[in-house]
Simulated assay, not measured.
Amino acid sequence: MTACNTTTTTIQPNDSEKLFYSELDKYIDSLSVKFREISVIKMKVCEDIVQALLLQKGKTFGSFSPKFVFWAKQTFLLLKIVGIDIACCVKTKKIVCIYESFFNVISERHVSVSHGGRDKTLCEVNSHSSWVPRPAIEIFLKHCTPCQVRKPIKQHVVSKPIISLGVITRLQIDLVDMHTRPDKIEQDVVFN
């Protein structure tokens, strides 16, 4: 039995999840063809990676191309958890997060950092799994209702030019109270 995801419960997608995946698909489609396939790992590709990793040396590749098998063996390793083979990233040794579970994984991690923003969420996601692109987190945060409600609305201050009618008609002075921080050069000498 093979699996590529730790989340096995089936949840019906809500509107925010559908919107998330539609924007994520737009992002993936904007990438060059070469990077579309490897930017995210979908369930079918993850299952193929696990099967490629299970191939014995010297055996035929079956339906896989030698290039795919080489890429899978260079990039991923197999981890057996409770008798289930799971693909992990070679560099980070973290479980590969598949495309279909991005919304749930990012949501859980984002809530666990108390809606802490992009960098905290990215760090939390990367500490538990791999292959989650930063734009996926940014897209998720754009649609996170608590974060959008909490974010202050930027109001630009209309600057009004100061027009001076002559020399020394307008002055600006900074007042500093030096009694709270006296300068001491020596024990006996104090400047106030």
Rank of each mutant, 00 (worst) to 15 (best):
residue 132 V to D: 00
residue 175 L to N: 13
residue 85 D to E: 10
residue 22 S to P: 00
residue 50 V to K: 14
residue 170 R to K: 11
residue 155 Q to I: 12
residue 149 V to T: 04
residue 142 K to D: 15
residue 77 L to T: 02
residue 82 V to Y: 15
residue 31 L to I: 05
residue 6 T to M: 07
residue 73 K to D: 15
residue 13 P to I: 01
residue 36 R to A: 04
residue 30 S to Q: 06
residue 111 V to L: 02
residue 182 P to S: 05
residue 189 V to G: 01
residue 181 R to L: 15
residue 127 S to Y: 08
residue 113 V to K: 00
residue 126 N to H: 13
residue 71 W to K: 11
residue 192 N to T: 10
residue 129 S to Q: 08
residue 133 P to L: 02
residue 113 V to C: 05
residue 187 Q to A: 13
residue 64 F to I: 07
residue 145 T to E: 14
residue 125 V to D: 01
residue 60 T to E: 15
residue 4 C to G: 11
residue 114 S to I: 01
residue 98 I to D: 05
residue 111 V to K: 02
residue 29 D to R: 14
residue 160 K to S: 10
residue 166 G to Q: 06
residue 148 Q to M: 06
residue 89 C to P: 05
residue 138 E to K: 11
residue 117 G to R: 10
residue 12 Q to T: 04
residue 64 F to A: 04
residue 136 A to S: 05
residue 36 R to M: 05
residue 191 F to C: 06
residue 21 Y to F: 15
residue 80 K to F: 07
residue 73 K to Y: 04
residue 157 V to M: 12
residue 134 R to V: 09
residue 10 T to A: 06
residue 59 K to F: 12
residue 119 D to V: 04
residue 125 V to A: 03
residue 53 L to M: 12
residue 42 K to D: 15
residue 131 W to D: 10
residue 189 V to N: 05
residue 8 T to L: 06
residue 87 A to D: 07
residue 43 M to N: 13
residue 184 K to L: 09
residue 177 D to Y: 09
residue 75 T to V: 03
residue 21 Y to V: 12
residue 136 A to V: 01
residue 23 E to V: 01
residue 127 S to G: 14
residue 66 P to T: 06
residue 43 M to L: 13
residue 98 I to W: 00
residue 156 H to G: 03
residue 135 P to R: 08
